[in-house]
Every structure is written in structure tokens, then in C-alpha cells.
């Protein structure tokens, strides 16, 4: 399909909400195979939807949890007795959102075109290969032996490299950057994420100090009154 064909499809008679949701979900498949066209249209031609993006993110977290729980023990050493699902999800979701935020915050400095919604959507669509490969991989892991681990590892690496590549192209298209600029931008994004983490830490430590101050003030007054 070319861009023209796509925009022709887009001008079809009005879809219902549900149909549009399914169409945007299906569009994820197009994006991962034609990232340059796909990401451009995702944002600029409104081929994607936030609902689909949320779905991909949730599926990604679900894949992650299922992977920890049901991958055969030959390929993963997950101490299930210590694993907390919420903690696992938070440890993925939090960096993901902080990186999106840092990216959005810095896009002004770097003359980027993307809005927060666009960045978030592009990043979520970039997670699709992870879901598509890792979910079946959980099943496969239960039918192969330790000696055949190379197939497993290769597929796993492919899924991650594919995702990283999509994220790169996604950022490039959303902000309308050149590849070189995108690389520099990614470095700054990581730096920005670290700054955000630092600010959060400072904020919480100050907050706890402030609360501590009022608590001790209250105690002092209570002691004086008795």
C-alpha cells in the first residue's frame, strides 16, 4: 500500500467508533512493517488512535507478566516467590512514561513537531513487535529443550532490536527530524529523564521533610498543652 491508497481508505464513509478502533489496531501491523510511512501517517493522517496505543501498552505489560510466569524455567530464572506483578509493571511503565515526558519536554528546544499525544502514540505502536513475538515465544519455550535455546534467544533479540528501531524511526517521523538529529535527541532525552528522576527524588525528600516538620510541631504543641 502506498500513502495515497491509505488516504483514499481514510476517506471511506464514516466508521463507527468500534470499527475505527479495530482499524487503528490493525494499523499497528502496517506500522511495524512500513515504519517510515506508517509513523508519518500515524500522526499526520490520524491513522492511529490513543485507544489502540493504550491497548498496546497494556498488552506489553501483560506479555511481560505472562513471560515471567509461564516461560519454561530452562530459559528464564524468575524467582516467582519474590516477584510482585504491580512492581514489575511499574518498573516498566514508569521509565516509559518518564522517557516520553522528557522527550516531549525537550522537543521544544530541538524544534520538534510532535505533541505529547503523538510521542506517546508512536512509542506505544513501537511496542507491537515485542507483543507479537514474545507472546508466542512463551508457548514455544515450553516445547523446546535447553539445547535449542539459540532459537529462543535469537527471536527474543529480534523482537527487542525491532522495537528499538521502530522507536527510533517513530521519533524521527513524529518530530520530522533527520536521523543524525534523532540520535543526538535520544541522548538528550535520556539525560532529561535523569533530570526528571532527580527532581522527583528532591521533591519527595523535601515533602517528607516538610511533613516531618509539621508532625513534630504538632507533637511539641501537644506536649506543651498537657
Amino acid at each position: 500500500m502506498t500513502v495515497n491508497e491509505l488516504s483514499l481508505n481514510d476517506s471511506r464513509p464514516a466508521q463507527t467508533g468500534w470499527q475505527r478502533y479495530l482499524a487503528t489496531l490493525r494499523y499497528g501491523l502496517y506500522v511495524i512493517l512500513h515504519p517510515f510511512d506508517g509513523f508519518w501517517d500515524l500522526v499526520h493522517e490520524k491513522r492511529g488512535s490513543l485507544a489502540a496505543a493504550h491497548t498496546f501498552l497494556v498488552l506489553f505489560l501483560l506479555t511481560r507478566v505472562l513471560k515471567l510466569m509461564y516461560t519454561n524455567f530452562q530459559f528464564i530464572s524468575a524467582p516467582l516467590q519474590y516477584i510482585n506483578i504491580y512492581e514489575q509493571c511499574a518498573s516498566l511503565l514508569f521509565p516509559f512514561l518518564v522517557l516520553c515526558l522528557a522527550n516531549w519536554a525537550l522537543s521544544t528546544l530541538f524544534d520538534g513537531k510532535g505533541r505529547f499525544k503523538d510521542i506517546y502514540m508512536a512509542m506505544c505502536y513501537a511496542l507491537v513487535p515485542y507483543i507479537l513475538i514474545q507472546l508466542p515465544l512463551i508457548l514455544i519455550s515450553n516445547f523446546i529443550s535447553f539445547d535449542e535455546a539459540s532459537y529462543y534467544t535469537v527471536l527474543m533479540s529480534v523482537s527487542i532490536i525491532w522495537c528499538l528501531f521502530l522507536a527510533f524511526v517513530g521519533l524521527m517521523q513524529v518530530h520530522d527530524y533527520s536521523p543524525g538529529k534523532t540520535i543526538i535527541f535520544i541522548f538528550f532525552t535520556i539525560f532529561g529523564a535523569l533530570v526528571i528522576l532527580f527532581l522527583i527524588l528532591v521533591f519527595f525528600s523535601l515533602l517528607s521533610d516538610a511533613i516531618g516538620y509539621f508532625v513534630s510541631l504538632y507533637r511539641e504543641i501537644v506536649f506543651r498543652l498537657y
Binding site: 524455567f73 530452562q74 530464572s77 516445547f143 529443550s145 535447553f146 539445547d147 535449542e148
Partner: peptide, 14 residues
């Protein structure tokens, strides 16, 4: 948690 031996036994079993 013996992966090598499990894999070996699994291959025969499969």
C-alpha cells in the same frame, strides 16, 4: 532447577 538435564530428558520425552 537443573536446566541441562531437564532439556535432555525433555528431548527424549518429546
Amino acid at each position: 532447577h537443573d536446566r541441562e538435564n531437564y532439556g535432555r530428558a525433555y528431548r527424549y520425552y518429546r
